[in-house]
Structure formats: C-alpha cells, structure tokens
C-alpha cells in the first residue's frame, strides 16, 4: 500500500537552511505526500484518538515532536549504527522520545494523558515514525531529516485534526473543542452516533483520501 520514497539529497556546499529542497521536505507531506492519505501510514491511531478535536491536537503535537527528534538523532547516528541492529536502535530512540512525551503530558495535561493513555505509548509503533527513519533519516543529513520529521508530523496532524473536527461536530451535535476553555456550540442538531465510534473515523478518513487523491490525481501503482 505505502509508497515510501527514499529521497537522497546530494551533497552541496553550504545549502541555505530553507532552500527550495528543504521547504519541499516540510510542505510535501502535508499535501501531495501525506503520510495518512497518500502513504497510508498511521491509520490506527488516526481512527482511535479523533473522537474529539483537543486530544487530536495533543496527539499531533506528540507525533510531530517524536518524528522530528527521532529523525534528527537517527540521522546524527546514521554512520555509527551497526546495520544488523538498526531497527533495535531506532526503537530505542523512538521509545525514548515517546516516553518523554508521555511524562510531560502526565505532568502538564493530566486529563489528556489519561484519555490518550495507550495511544501515546503506541506512537512507538506508529508506522510513520519508523517509516521515515528507515526511508529518510538513515540516508540523509540531520537538518533535512529534522524537517522531514516535522513535515510528516504536520501531515499526520492535519488529517487528524480535520477528522477530529468533523467527528466531534457531528458526534456531539454541534459542539466543538469540548473540555477546553474555548468550547462552543453552533447550530445544534441531533448527534450522529456513528461519528463517535471508530467506524465513523474510518468513513471520514476514507472520504478524505478520496477527496485528496481526486484533487491531486494520485493513483496507486498497479502491477
């Protein structure tokens, strides 16, 4: 299903920090190379945590943080990692950052920590993170890898928040951002029960994939 692309940036004398290539790394995963809608990675958590918008936002920030920093660290270590245990090394680095995110949430936003509970731990197994480490960070310099991590995190987050907004709005019957200070309700209507369940997320993600691929003219490679 996934179309992981190992992009290799050629060596150059002092490339500017936000060169065209680097900007592409940041922006592409949000749209044309989106991890969820195009690469079809990280679907599981996209279905699980998107009942409400606020947890979706927190989850997105967590994934952006983990993706960016594990990409950075793996890229820094890429010439020292023994090839035979590279997956284990990646796992150690990823789980280190996931655990840090988990502890920070537990200390600062305990309610969300309880709500996200197992899904924070499951960032470790989020295919986006491992996929980007394998496909990008192992072959590229730290700065592009860092940007790639942020870009893919943003791409994941964009879909997550979109799904969260739609599910919360229809699932609660017109309320958004419930449980936060900016909670508000507009145009109340009877709630749509399926939106509160994972099946609702599946439908929304499916529609988003359809909409985006129709717009970008992307098609799966056929054999």
């Amino acid at each position: 299903m996934s179309t992981e692309t190992a992009v290799v940036i050629e060596k150059k004398e002092r490339e500017p920090l936000f060169s065209k290539k680097n900007r592409k790394l940041l922006v592409d995963p949000i749209d044309s190379d989106n991890p969820i809608t195009v690469q079809v990675l990280g679907i599981c958590s996209a279905l699980a945590v998107t009942v409400q918008t606020w947890p979706s936002i927190v989850m997105s920030i967590g994934v952006i943080f983990v993706a960016a920093f594990s990409n950075l660290i793996i890229s820094l270590l890429r010439n020292t990692i023994p090839p035979r245990i590279r997956i284990i090394v990646q796992l150690v680095v990823v789980s280190l950052f996931v655990q840090i995110v988990s502890e920070i949430l537990k200390a600062y936003i305990y309610d969300i920590y309880l709500e996200l509970s197992v899904f924070i731990g499951l960032i470790i197994t989020n295919c986006i993170i491992m996929g980007r480490l394998e496909a990008f960070a192992l072959a590229n310099k730290p700065w592009p890898s860092f940007l790639d991590g942020i870009g893919n995190g943003l791409g994941y987050g964009a879909i997550l928040i979109a799904v969260g907004l739609i599910r919360e709005y229809f699932g609660t019957g017109g309320t958004l951002f419930s449980g936060t200070p900016i909670e508000f309700t507009m145009f109340t209507f009877p709630s749509v029960g399926i939106m509160a369940m994972p099946a609702g997320a599946c439908i929304i993600v499916g529609l988003l994939i359809w909409a985006q691929r129709a717009r970008n003219g992307y098609a799966e490679e056929s054999n």
Partner: peptide, 22 residues
C-alpha cells in the same frame, strides 16, 4: 560496524544514555 564487540558496546552505551535521559 559488523563486529560483535562493536554491536555490544554500541547497544550498552545507547541504553545507558537513553535511560539516563529518561
């Protein structure tokens, strides 16, 4: 990088550093 001794030392060092940060 494929020598066993390198792999063992690498793993131990990585784990110790990660554990200390945590």
């Amino acid at each position: 990088r494929n020598k066993n001794s390198y792999i063992i030392i690498y793993t131990v060092a990585l784990c110790v550093i990660a554990a200390s940060v945590l």
